[in-house]
């Protein structure tokens, strides 16, 4: 089995051994990372085509994460140039974070530096973490119709601090919609993890 296949199949038991063996055989960490990313791209496509659902995608993302844990020190990951920097979290009251975690892992796979600040995050924390992390993009997630309004409070908090224009904002999660993104006046909405990556890449291109 290739590393790419291990990611696609979510083989969390074997991916570490596969990677270590490949490294021993002289494969460069950058090449292994590329293989994993192309595996994740296929996972994203399968999710879009409804061949994969949350459990399958999650398993692949975990496999990818295990691989990244081995590769990060070898890649000099922290110093390498990022595609962009993003702070991502589920808004206050919302404890659902699988989708948001998947987005975070997909973004990381695509070369973004991601600061996943967790779930049920108060508005003010988004502001502070975005400043601290020197983010380009702030990602907000809400799964429930009862918590979606928390997104508005986050945007208002950024306005209050005069930082609304400093960052790009993206929203996602089952309760979010394209219309709501327009209503909030934010840069975009991603209906799944792969679209979120495409959206962030577009935002970074436009920024440059």
């Amino acid at each position: 089995m290739s590393i790419k296949e291990a990611v696609i199949n979510g083989d969390i038991d074997n991916i570490e051994t596969l990677i270590r063996n490949s490294l021993d055989n002289g494969l460069k960490p950058e090449e292994i990372l590329r293989e994993m990313i192309s595996g994740m791209e296929i996972v994203g496509e399968k999710f879009e085509k409804k061949e994969y659902y949350v459990p399958e995608t999650l398993l692949s993302a975990y496999a990818m994460q295990r691989g990244l844990d081995i590769l990060k020190p070898l890649l000099d990951y922290e110093k390498s140039e990022a595609t962009g920097r993003i702070v991502i979290g589920s808004v206050e009251g919302d404890v659902h974070d699988i989708g948001k975690n998947l987005v975070a892992m997909f973004l990381e796979g695509a070369g973004f530096k991601v600061y996943n600040i967790g779930r049920d995050i108060p508005a003010i924390d988004f502001v502070e973490k975005a400043k601290e992390f020197r983010a380009d993009i702030v990602g907000l997630s809400a799964m429930m119709t009862t918590t979606i309004e928390g997104m508005k409070r986050v945007i208002e908090e950024f306005e209050k601090h005069g930082l609304r224009e400093k960052y790009a904002f993206i929203i996602g999660g089952a309760a979010a919609t394209e219309e709501y993104a327009k209503e909030l006046g934010v840069q975009g909405y991603g209906s799944d993890a792969r679209k979120a990556v495409l959206l962030c890449e577009r935002i970074m291109r436009e920024k440059k």
């Binding site: 009251g93 404890v95 049920d120 429930m144 009862t146 918590t147 309004e149």
Partner: peptide, 12 residues
């Protein structure tokens, strides 16, 4: 469970 000021209860 956490019950916020606005919105329904959620599992903490």
């Amino acid at each position: 469970l956490k019950i916020p000021l606005n919105g329904g209860p959620a599992v903490r």
